[in-house]
Design a protein around this nucleic acid. Structure first.
Length: 181
DNA sequence: TATAAGATTTACT
DNA sequence: GTAAATCTTATAT
């Protein structure tokens, strides 16, 4: 499962002149048209989901509930809408910037949710389709590889409506403290 | 053309 | 624990 590979990788953004980065600690896989929980289920396609049909390596950001952005990494070949949703990161650099961006909660809930992390990183729906190896948003492999024993998997969150597909263990979490810098 | 629901978060009871 | 905020897409007139 490709979603597992992203655990431990470092996501970096350079937006509005600010650099922020964090270790990816929680991901969810969305397996194309056969996955009922995916926006691309049954081949659904629109302007919003277009990046998912592009070649892997681009960002798929989209707005949910009119107020929150969710950040995905497209992993499939062109025409196959496979994507990995980044649900949580651990702040690494630019933590003060993140605080500045979200004055809501304190240290605790900085980036432990899909909508929260995009807020903290400064990602918006305008970044959908951005290559992940450019100079605005990119991913670095800093050699952080979580031990297999520290990786937990389980059912996805917030997709109960998807029926049986919601029970698939497509969710991967890195145990806190399992990654040493 | 109009209505309903969603890969969420926050605030209030 | 429950409800509201708010916009895009999908499904129904």
């Amino acid at each position: 499962m490709l979603a597992r590979w992203f655990l431990g990788k470092v996501l970096i953004t350079h937006i509005d002149g600010h650099i922020t980065s964090g270790i990816i600690t929680e991901t969810e896989a969305y397996a194309g048209i056969s996955d009922r929980a995916s926006h691309a289920w049954r081949g659904r396609r629109s302007t919003r989901t277009a990046p998912m049909y592009m070649a892997g390596g681009v960002a798929y950001v989209y707005l949910i509930y009119g107020m929150y952005s969710l950040f995905n990494i497209v992993t499939g070949p062109p025409g196959i809408p496979h994507a990995v949703l980044v649900r949580a990161i651990r702040p690494l650099e630019g933590i003060d910037i993140m605080h500045q961006r979200r004055k809501r909660t304190g240290e605790k809930g900085l980036s432990d949710g899909p909508g929260k992390l995009t807020m903290a990183m400064g990602i918006s729906c305008a970044d959908s389709g951005t290559p992940l190896f450019g100079k605005r948003i990119w991913i670095e492999d800093r050699g952080i590889v979580p031990d297999a024993a520290d990786i937990m998997s389980g059912p996805r969150i917030g997709v109960d409506y998807a029926g049986e597909d919601a029970l698939l263990p497509y969710r991967f979490i890195c145990k806190p403290g399992s990654m040493v810098q």
